[in-house]
């Protein structure tokens, strides 16, 4: 294996292009664990840590956020954010443990695309999109499309996910990340991320993503639309919870059975919506 630490994106892209199975090294918190157990043995690693700007978070003029791929969980945990963007620190503080959070990166997590990881779920709820650079140019796509399957993204060999962009939070908005795991800091058995905004007492917009239950985070457009302009009554929440429990494609694994996930999704969805709703209502007052 060879190792490079380029100082520009262009140089990095060139190094990746030279060897077919070359891989980027971000925080390494998953990749090195896999190398230690010899699950992967990349012939080349291209460390992204000296490329300027990739560890920065930038507030966009429209109120949105643009963060570099090398932003760590720890940085996001300490982020002071507004409205629904508070979903970012809330999610970050539930990831693994302090040492992992200090080095693990949001970009690394998205590229690994573990269905039980936290960022895919939370960022899909925030309607994030990703910026990808390749030797032939750049593209931007919604995260929900970037995530194709378990451990699979649209990233082509030689490409680098450089930034993640999050649209501005709504006027009276809030988020909630409700994670159920075997132990604290474990990957999610089931996670529910909610981002919503209120207009007066009624729901103006809402996105609900369920993680840990399908190859990629699950949303139900129709059910979400059905909540808009309601006051998010218990019956409304139950209905969306039930429809999400049907929409997920869970499998039995070491964390729980598929059937169990279907059993708990409605209740956890209700908890997450209630939490976000309460937070947004408080913000409104």
């Amino acid at each position: 294996m060879d190792y490079f630490r380029p100082e520009s994106l262009e140089e990095a892209l060139g190094l990746l292009a030279e060897i077919p199975d070359a891989r980027c090294l971000a925080g390494g918190q998953t990749l090195v664990a896999m190398m230690n157990t010899r699950i992967v043995a990349p012939p080349r690693l291209v460390s992204l840590r000296d490329i300027p700007g990739l560890d920065q978070i930038e507030a966009l003029p429209n109120g949105g956020l643009r963060m570099g791929t090398m932003v760590t969980h720890e940085t996001l945990m300490n982020l002071s954010a507004n409205g629904a963007h508070r979903l970012l620190p809330e999610t970050a503080r539930q990831i693994a443990s302090p040492a992992i959070r200090a080095f693990g990166t949001v970009g690394g997590a998205l590229c690994h695309a573990d269905p039980a990881a936290d960022w895919p779920t939370a960022l899909v709820a925030l309607d994030a999109s990703v910026h990808v650079a390749g030797i032939d140019g750049k593209r931007r796509e919604p995260l929900a499309e970037f995530l194709v399957d378990a451990l699979t993204t649209t990233l082509e060999p030689g490409e680098i996910l450089t930034h993640i962009e999050i649209p501005p939070p709504g006027q009276t908005s809030a988020g909630a990340y409700v994670k159920f795991a075997r132990v604290e800091g474990d990957f999610a058995t089931v996670a529910v991320a909610v981002s919503l905004s209120l207009s007066g007492p009624t729901c103006e917009a809402i996105r609900i993503a369920v993680g840990g239950c399908s190859p990629v985070p699950t949303r139900d457009d129709a059910a979400e639309t059905g909540l808009v302009s309601t006051e998010l009554s218990e019956a409304d929440m139950q209905a969306v919870g039930n429809s999400l429990a049907t929409a997920i494609q869970p499998e039995d694994d070491g964390r729980a059975s598929a059937a169990y996930r279907r059993m708990v999704v409605p209740g956890l969805v209700q908890r997450a919506i209630t939490l976000a709703h309460d937070r947004a209502s408080e913000a409104r007052i």
Partner: peptide
């Protein structure tokens, strides 16, 4: 509450600390 070594067809399915969970300080 949480610890169990498991096998499937005689193959251990969780012989790592990632998969076999021991309680931590927050658990």
């Amino acid at each position: 509450l949480c610890e169990e070594l498991t096998w499937e067809d005689g193959q251990p399915t969780n012989p790592t600390m990632m998969d076999y969970k021991v309680p931590g300080a927050l658990d």
